[in-house]
Design a protein around this nucleic acid. Structure first.
Lengths: 213, 213
DNA sequence: TGACAAATACCGACCAGTCGGTATCGTATG
DNA sequence: CATACGATACCGACTGGTCGGTATTTGTCA
């Protein structure tokens, strides 16, 4: 013990604990059904500590959303850096997002909170921005692929990006509920399906990242 | 109006009004964030009337879920009766579900409630059954298509059905939030993409229901 | 360095308000 | 008249949020 370093560090650590507990609690249960007391209890702290770091439950939720969203985006960005064409990058991105949601239950907070905040009174512009960011990652890849000639033209990249984004959300949602075995393999199978449907050439559909033909 | 016919009819009408109001309220806001008072106010009735017809908020939500789900399934079933092969039926089914969600905001209650109930303490078997039913409609079509030879083999029908189900949910979710123009056309475009990716032959991908070639 | 004061991190009892749910009552219909 | 239906008044539990207080650092000046 006793390694409680500087006061600022300690504060940030506490803030982080709250954020992590909140993300976990929101992920299962959603915003409205999760009480502050539950979050505070899960974090091992108190309401006083909470209101020292955050102004309101809503601000906490936004912060937790942003917190997990940033993790997801960072992981996703890392996953696509070494893909040499758009289909490969798309595949990596889809797999990565699915894996992240599978492995870190708290990640689902961004889904739950995202869905719930849209119905909220405050259309926080920053929140919308984050949502946009995730979708635009897909759209950007699709546009790049269309330029490269590796992704079918004639599809609106933006609309298709929304489909992909939604498909991951939906898949995760269904799987989280239904469970089932070997989600990783099944996930890859379906990512294949999506990517192959998008890739430009049917003849090479069995392997978008190889040079067969 | 004085056309208040028999007492039983009147009761059923009241029950229906509550159900409809509840579905609408749950659709925007979700279960936990929607108060009984709000539902009762929206229906133009009172708490007394509500508790005369339902035992609890949870029972109401289940009933509303079931109510809208039955409507969706009925519409969907009607939409696929005159499709002559599996890809066409899939296309019709996807379009129909997307259209239903687009046109009747209260339909989204089945999505919202579905997502929220999974996290609930009570894993109501009947609810699970309804969820299964919707997914199995897709799975059944896929299996049929694989038998016909019109749908690619090698894909687990069940897993793929979950993807399609999830994709619709996700699309609806994103669109309902982001809005945008001409959702109907964009929706069809993306349905094309999904169905073509599933259909057996790449050469005829531009029109799965025609005999080009 | 030591002591004292200001600032910070945190605590937990508490508040007003809202929730789901109940008990009771009026009323119209059969 | 009896009773199904719906309205009203109300309850205790619990919610998000507040507040006065305490423990621990940090800054400062001898």
């Amino acid at each position: 013990m006793a390694m409680m370093a500087t006061r600022q560090e300690r504060g940030e650590r506490t803030r982080g604990r709250i954020l992590e507990a909140a993300a976990g609690a929101f992920a299962e249960g959603g915003y409205a059904a999760t009480s502050l007391n539950a979050i505070v209890a899960a974090s091992g702290l108190t309401k006083g500590a909470f209101y020292h770091h955050f102004d309101s439950k809503e601000e906490l939720a936004l912060a937790a959303f942003r917190y997990k969203q940033e993790q997801l985006v960072a992981r996703s960005a890392a996953a696509i850096t070494d893909a040499h064409d758009a289909p490969a990058a798309l595949r990596a991105l889809l797999c990565e997002r699915a894996a992240a949601l599978r492995e870190d239950p708290a990640s689902r907070a961004v889904l739950r909170l995202g869905a719930e905040f849209r119905a909220l009174a405050s259309p926080d512009p920053e929140f919308v921005g984050f949502q946009e960011l995730a979708i635009e990652m897909f759209a950007e890849l699709l546009r790049r692929g269309q330029d490269e000639g590796t992704i079918r033209r004639g599809l609106d990249p933006r609309a298709t990006a929304e489909l992909l984004f939604g498909a991951i959300v939906g898949m995760d949602d269904v799987w989280h509920f239904l469970g089932g075995d070997d989600l990783e393999r099944r996930s890859e199978e379906l990512v294949d399906l999506l990517v192959e449907g998008l890739a430009v050439d049917a003849e090479q559909r069995n392997d978008t990242r190889k040079e067969r033909r």
